[in-house]
Amino acid sequence: MKTKFNDNDILRFLHDEMLEEESTLFLDALTEDENLWERYEYFQLTTDQINTLSFEPSVASVQAVMEVVKEEGKASKRKFRIRKLTSSPISVGLAAASFLTLFMFARLGNNIQQAKSQEVMLDFEPLPVPTLVHEVRIESHQQTDISWNAQDLNQKLDQIKQKAQSLSDDPLL
């Protein structure tokens, strides 16, 4: 370990950049070496003077920085949320399930539409002309009771039952 110290050593000591052991030796040298002490005193006083200097940024500058921090923070939080939502396995599963549900509904809607149009087709098969059963006329009010032939009605009922059966067998319904 050296015992002769120069200006660079004084600066390292002043700025706490000396190892403990070296500092002890330096302090010993300071008490013995008058020339070293004089130089140390000059550097210490000048350093102290320099350290008194400090400048503050304006309040406006600090506020401007914090504005940016907050604004960009909000934006990045939104991005983060979206990213988090789209990247988690649960959300991917949810999205897939939603897509599948929508697809099922679309197919179901399509099937119902087809079934309805078939039913409409069935409905368009005209029944025989109904039989007039009873007619009452009281002043302005008129009431008419009509009736179909029982065989025609049973036939129609069978058709409807068959159609209902075919629809209930459809796995998508």
Partner: peptide, 24 residues
């Protein structure tokens, strides 16, 4: 992690040193 207060602390802690450095 999104705590803006943490940066505010850093800013108030170092603003003088950073500004003095830049200004000089």
């Amino acid at each position: 992690k999104g705590n803006d207060r943490c940066f505010e602390v850093l800013l108030s802690k170092y603003k003088t040193k950073v500004f003095t450095t830049i200004y000089l």
